[in-house]
Every structure is written in C-alpha cells, then in structure tokens.
Design a protein around this nucleic acid. Structure first.
Lengths: 240, 240
DNA sequence: GGCCAAACTTGACCCAGATCAAGGAATCGT
DNA sequence: ACGATTCCTTGATCTGGGTCAAGTTTGGCC
C-alpha cells in the first residue's frame, strides 16, 4: 500500500462528518482524531488492500467509491460490499484483511493507524458505539444482498441495485435534482456485485431503457423516469 | 411468541458457556446474567420471531438449530443465517426483527429481556466486547455466503455446506467419532440456505454418494468418507 | 484530430439448474 | 400394524442467464 499522502482538511469541514465513524465525536475527541488522521488517495482501479495482507490502518471513505471483493480459486469473483463516502474500512481486532479492497473510482480515504485507533476506541464510547452501529448496518445490508444473490432474477437484481442507488443518493445530497444518477461502477463491476455476467447486466439495462423506465445520458449517467416501476420490479416486500 | 418457560440450569454447567455471548463473564457478572435469564423451548417448525415484530428479548441458542430467513413478496425465501448452539439472536439497538427466526429442530434458548440486557451491556465490557466479536464473525460469514450464493455451482454449494458442518462440529464436540455427521436441516431448508431447489440438493447429495465421497446412514445421518475431495469440490482458495 | 484500447451492446447458441411429474421411503397418529 | 401424511428421490423437459462471438461507441493519448 503506497498512496500519496494529502494535506488533511479540518474535521469540522469534512463532507462525511455527519455519517462517518467520527460522527458522534466533538471537541476534545475530535481533536485527537484530527491529530492521528492522514488522508490518502488512490487512482481508479488501484488496489487499496489485498486479501490476507496485514491490515495496518483503518479508514473512512471521504470521496470516491471502493469495492470489497472475494475470489474463488479459478478467478470467479463476487463483490461483497460497496464502499461509498462515509463508509468504513477495517475492523478492530482483525489482524488481516478478509477481502480485496479496490478503488472503483479515484478515492480519498481518511486513514488512522490501526493500533492508535484501537486504543482510542477503548476509551471513546462515542467512537465504539458508532462503529458497532456501522457493523450491524453492514450485516443487515449483507443479508439483504444474500436474498438478492440467492433468489432474485437478473431483472430484479438490476432493479434493486438502481433502487439502492436512488436511496443512497437521496441520503447523501440535498442537491437531488430529481432522479439524475451516476452508476458508480462499470458493467463488469455491477455484474460482480449482482452475481451476473456483464452481458446480462448490459441486456437488462437496455431492457429497462426500452421500457421507458430509465434513460441514459451517457454510459454512466442516467435518469430514472419511473421510480415506482423500478421498485415494483425489485421483488421486495411492500415498505414503500 | 409464547413458549414454555423451563427451569434454568446453572450457568456454570451450561454446555455453551465457552462460546456464547456470556463466555467472558465470571463471578459477579455471571450472577447478574443468571438472575435475568429465562430458558424457553420451541418445537421443531415453530416460529421464534416474526419479521417486523417488536423484539423484546435477545437470546443464545442452548440446544437445537434455528434459521434466519428472508422472504420475497411472492414467497421465494432465502435463509440468511443458521443458528447453532452458542449462536446469538438479536441486536442491541434494534427495535424490530429483520427476518423470520424459525426453529428447525426442537430448540432451547437462554433468553434475556432486551432492555435489561442492553443496560447491562453498557456497564459490562466483557459482554459488549464478546457481542461485537460475534457480530463481526457473522459479518464475515455473511460475506462468505455471498460468494457462495453469487458465484458457486450447485456442486460447490453442497460441498461447501458439508465442509462447514464438518468444521463447525469439530469446534463443538470433542466426541468427534470421525466424520459422522447429521444434517441439521431438511432438503428444502438446505435448498433455501444455498439458493437452490430441493430437487437439486437431493440430486447433488446423491451424486456425492455415488462418487463415494459421503455415505448415508439414513436421511439425516451420514459419514464423510473423503473430506479432502469434499474440500476440493468447494471451489474455495487453498487454506487447508 | 485520428488512432487505439477499453468498455459496452447485441446476437446466436447452450447448459446448469429450475420446473413439472411420478413414485418410494420414513414417520406419525390412531 | 396401518393408512396417511410428509419428506425425499429420480426422471423428463424447459428456460434464464451464461458463453462465445462480432460489432459499436467512447475516451485517452500522442
């Protein structure tokens, strides 16, 4: 892991302050974090962590998108997590990385060396409480994804994925010029996330387009014309 | 949830003491747990918790097997967790249950009312540390299962499942009369766990049998004649 | 601005596993 | 002990999505 070290911005001005692992910390606690944090950047496609490698830092995603992936002996891969801004990388008490972490776009991380961070955790309930919340949210998300991977059709998988992008983006920004979205991943990466092939992803996106449910501006940018239809195609139970 | 309340056994004699959420607690801490715990039993097939229901207790599995399941609007279901003795049900800070919890066999739980348990967590690091460990282990397991559901073939899924049973049973008991195992689930339940149909599960088990890798004693009990071959079929990377 | 590589789309064909269908074997209640 | 119900096996057929194979678009780079 060798990434350029950037000049930090002040925590008070950090765009992910409200959701990241540090979101409950104020004043003195924040000052300590401020002192031990280091920003690092990765180019799109760069490997952030390798499976099995010693994990010597933990980090929050400040900007960009990273993926967590697992690989079978013959090279088939499955993405097991998608890290968007404010998401957390690393686990207290884990010496080694359990999966490959790759920058899907240019990524900036707010890194903390693991040992100091773990020590801080022990004496900072605001930090450890938030970290437990984050871990449990990830567990819920992983289980939702198990349902998707095990039982949903290709169409339902794509619809669920786009629906997730809508929800996540409405959390992030209040900009929200209605339903204009960006795919954070290539077709192949989407396929690895959904347990499909890139050809099937492409076909399903084309099908949604020709049904008038979405409309592409270019390869990555599109607009959702009919969010309700999209949700109906996701196969999920009624909650909205 | 209305299950018979059993007479408790002493924590000191509890068969799951060494792995359950209470495993780090001793002396006074254990006395408190002892006081607030209640054993409850469920018949095979009984529903322990319903998705969306208020979760008013948390629990450890003392004996038997329970499943965590999610369901799509049209009834397709995916098992998202398998709870064996010492596994934990429920999450601090979660008001509602996220999935159906069903007794796959007769099950005995060691239950704690949620509120008192959460209060205890705040003042008992031995308890909360162990709970975080358990949650992170579950997250790792969920991600391994995502790889299985998204990318493995039917054969690989079955091999992985049996391999998991071997590992788990060698953890549990030192009885371990070599490689004699019991399927904790029906064919249909295995199918729901692996993202397959019950017919495919049956066919794959028959195939393993006719390849001389496993041998059935009856429907549920079998012996693994060739654990290495089984592992080789699982598709996983080399570690062992 | 034009070439090249990478990313994507689309078509034709195929196959693993789903679905449909029929028995067989274990278990339960009487 | 006996139907009867539930669970499981096995066979026949079908199909969604994978695989293979061209093309097409896009964006990067001299």
């Amino acid at each position: 892991m060798n990434a350029p070290v950037l000049s930090n911005i002040k925590c008070g001005e950090c765009p992910i302050r409200h959701r990241a692992v540090c979101s409950r910390c104020e004043g003195a606690e924040l000052d300590i974090l401020e002192k031990i944090k280091v920003y690092r950047s990765f180019k799109a496609g760069g490997q952030i962590l390798w499976r099995g490698e010693a994990m010597d830092f933990v980090a929050s995603v400040v900007s960009g998108v990273a993926t967590l992936g697992k690989t079978l002996e013959d090279g088939r891969t499955q993405m097991v997590g998608l890290l968007l801004p404010s998401d957390f990388i690393g686990r207290p008490g884990r010496e080694r990385v359990e999966f490959d972490v790759i920058a899907a776009s240019d990524v900036t991380l707010c890194c903390f060396d693991r040992k100091p961070f773990e020590n801080l955790l022990l004496v900072t309930p605001h930090l450890s409480e938030r970290l437990v919340e984050i871990a449990l949210d990830e567990l819920d998300a992983a289980r939702d994804w198990m349902l998707l991977l095990g039982r949903k059709t290709a169409r339902e998988k794509i619809a669920t994925f786009i629906d997730m992008l809508i929800r996540r983006s409405s959390l992030e920004e209040e900009t929200a010029q209605n339903d204009a979205l960006t795919l954070p991943l290539s077709r192949e990466e989407i396929a690895n996330y959904l347990g499909l092939t890139l050809e099937t992803v492409s076909r399903q996106l084309s099908a949604l387009k020709s049904q008038g449910i979405i409309q592409f501006k270019d390869r990555r940018n599109f607009e959702v014309l009919n969010p309700q239809a999209l949700y109906d195609l996701s196969g999920d139970d009624s909650p909205n």
